[in-house]
Write a protein that binds this DNA or RNA. Structure first.
Lengths: 305, 305
DNA sequence: TCAGTGTTATTCATAAGTGAATATCTAATG
DNA sequence: CATTAGATATTCACTTATGAATAACACTGA
């Protein structure tokens, strides 16, 4: 009677979320035929279909949908189990996964990570670079560097320091287009903005500006491209003060002080006492605030003649 | 990264509860070597041991114990999932599991079940006979007939009727030992009682009597044996009025009215709307109260010469 | 209309998991 | 001290499950 296969519920959960056997197979690390068969087997045991099949994927039947709540609860519990288990693995060997955005990855980590890796050769550091908030829940990462305080209650956040921001352009750009002195004038310039990232919009709103991403001259969420373009006389960029200055960019004073960018170090409650994770967190907390940015200045190959 | 195998957590949960690979293998329907290997695999993945091994079985390490809470939660969710899924299987074929005590099984069901099975040949009725409250949680049974209201909130109970009780003995017994007329005198007689079942003790306490199971002349929880023995001049039995009378036993009036025995029909909230289960419940609710007891009078072979 | 891209289902050689039997261990017992 | 009972671990023949390849299908867009 205890014949129930938790594995099949797991498969079902992921299939339901992805809506496709192929994607679920990818996520689960098994093959699509395997999922197909397990799903059929589960449906056979339950006596009715969990999904409607089509050539565009699978969509939950009412029956399948009615079971999703329990599946999600099971998944959360399973994830918590994994976190708690891994949080108690106090060995100083193994992996630590760190999630950072492109700016940290490009301009800060290269300065400080080698020393850590030298000091802890048993530890393999895995770095996930993304501009979205990585899921510490799913243990996609153990530690995350974020520029905003996390909202989840079960995350522990440590405010490290604040990065001063400013608007910058190269001397060459300013020679060609002049130097704006008011916010209004600034917005008429070739200022680089974001694509889907809403952070700048929100920050501007707090300053009383009405700015939409659509208004920008050039739009990308990949900030190192902002920097590289500005360095090549491409326009005005709002970025880290120290970084811009180390690149020889000139600060533009439009009479408005940009708010500092806070830097938070986050991890999950369940793993905060883990030695490996603690080691890297403490090291980052020590070294990140002291680091001058600017190791790999130019990620994109270019020839400035 | 989503490599986590829910199945192994299931195995771990059952192993932890049973404290033995062999028993867990039994409960899970797999072999002991399979469990041994999966457990080793899980421990290897987590990097530390979940159990201390000994020749007396496995005992949780502190690490393993710290994970049990999550496992139990997962198990409950899985069980709820199974119930909800099976509750929505509206086919009128398949199995329905019914849990009853020995009295119902012996003296009532034989009268009424054949008609139900004739009317619903597609349905296979499985009957678990136990005097303990069967677990509707684990879906050991879909429906349970109980003589006391269930305490769990997620069970639905339907009070069917009340069975009048009385003290009875055969004419032969009364001829030999006389007829008691007071409670005190009754307790001096060869009255049959229970072994581990505390219900009679509790009921007697409500009447103001102080009776312990140890005081009885003959002790067994198997009530049909009470009946059979009384019918063979073996002593006095407290049992169902109609049943005793149909056996030709004589009621003994000691000036105290025994409280009626309530009969409840129970099922889990999650499956109450299931057609199969509903069908049998409704049938039992209709037929049980009207049934005269006494189909198979003498379950034990005997020769009354 | 006709490739192109996505989907699920099926096939079959092969790899992985399984379990009966067995080895090995320990505590309890005569 | 030898024996028994009950436990986990290991072995190996064998069953089962797996996945690369493929088929069959439906939508999309040129």
């Amino acid at each position: 009677m205890n014949n129930t296969d938790w594995q099949q519920w797991h498969f079902f959960t992921v299939i339901a979320r992805t809506g496709s056997l192929n994607q679920a197979a990818d996520a689960l690390g098994v093959s699509q035929p395997t999922l197909s068969r397990h799903l059929q087997s589960l449906e056979a045991r339950l006596g009715q279909n969990l999904f409607d099949r089509s050539t565009r994927g699978l969509t939950l039947t009412a029956f399948g949908a009615s079971l999703m709540e329990g599946c999600q609860q099971m998944e959360q519990t399973a994830q918590a189990l994994e976190r708690r288990a891994s949080g108690q693995d106090q060995a100083l060997s193994g992996r630590v996964r760190l999630s950072v955005n492109e700016m940290i990855a490009q301009y800060y980590l290269p300065n400080i990570l080698p020393a850590f890796m030298d000091a802890n050769p048993q530890l393999s550091v895995e770095i996930e670079v993304t501009n979205r908030a990585s899921s510490l829940d799913k243990r996609d990462a153990d530690i995350a560097v974020r520029m905003f305080p996390p909202t989840q209650l079960d995350l522990i956040a440590r405010h490290l320091y604040d990065i001063p921001l400013g608007f910058y352009a190269s001397q060459g750009y300013l020679d060609r287009f002049g130097t704006p002195t008011t916010p209004e004038a600034l917005l008429e310039h070739r200022i680089m903005g974001y694509d889907r990232d809403k952070q700048f919009e929100l920050g501007a709103a707090q300053l009383g500006w009405t700015v939409r991403n659509e208004d920008f001259f050039l739009r990308t969420d990949y900030m190192p491209l902002h920097i590289a373009l500005a360095a090549q006389d491409g326009g005005i960029v709002g970025t880290h003060k120290e970084l811009a200055e180390s690149l020889g960019l000139i600060e533009i004073d439009v009479g408005v002080k940009l708010p500092d960018l806070p830097v938070y170090l986050c991890c999950h409650r369940d793993v905060v006492h883990n030695r490996r994770i603690r080691l890297l967190m403490d090291y980052l907390a020590d070294s990140l605030p002291q680091t001058k940015p600017g190791f790999l200045m130019h990620p994109l190959p270019h020839d400035r003649s």
